[in-house]
């Protein structure tokens, strides 16, 4: 186990750029409430979210864009605690899933 930074309270994990989280979740009507509620009640910053069923529809894939200065470590750990979250993968760089959608989000 690596020794962690000496400073406290815990600093944000990364101060630059946006990050993308890829979640695989159980697909049922309440799951989006669980995810979005977690972000708002823990004061985590969510910039964008996409959700679609995958496979036979028992699971969904959720993509979340988060600001780079967030407490990424805490976000991932708290998400992993949710019963409906099967897996959470943090993509370190900006992910193309949001880039490809840019044309649908033009204008003011």
């Amino acid at each position: 186990m690596q020794a962690l930074k000496e400073s406290y309270p815990c600093p944000p994990s990364d101060a630059s750029g946006q990050k993308v989280l890829e979640l695989t979740v159980n697909n049922h009507p309440g799951v989006m409430s669980h995810i979005c509620g977690l972000f708002s009640r823990r004061a985590f910053n969510m910039e964008g979210i996409l959700c679609m069923p995958i496979g036979d529809g028992k699971l969904s894939r959720i993509w979340i864009q988060i600001a780079g200065n967030s407490h990424l470590d805490q976000i991932v750990k708290q998400l992993e605690k949710l019963e409906d979250v099967r897996s959470a993968v943090l993509h370190p760089a900006e992910h193309e899933v949001f880039a490809k959608l840019e044309e649908y989000f033009q204008g003011s």
Binding site: M1, A3, L4, E6, Y8, C10, Q74, K81
Partner: peptide
Amino acid sequence: DPGEINKLRTAHL
């Protein structure tokens, strides 16, 4: 609970 580690105070271990 892994979420409690480093939540408020950094753990050295």
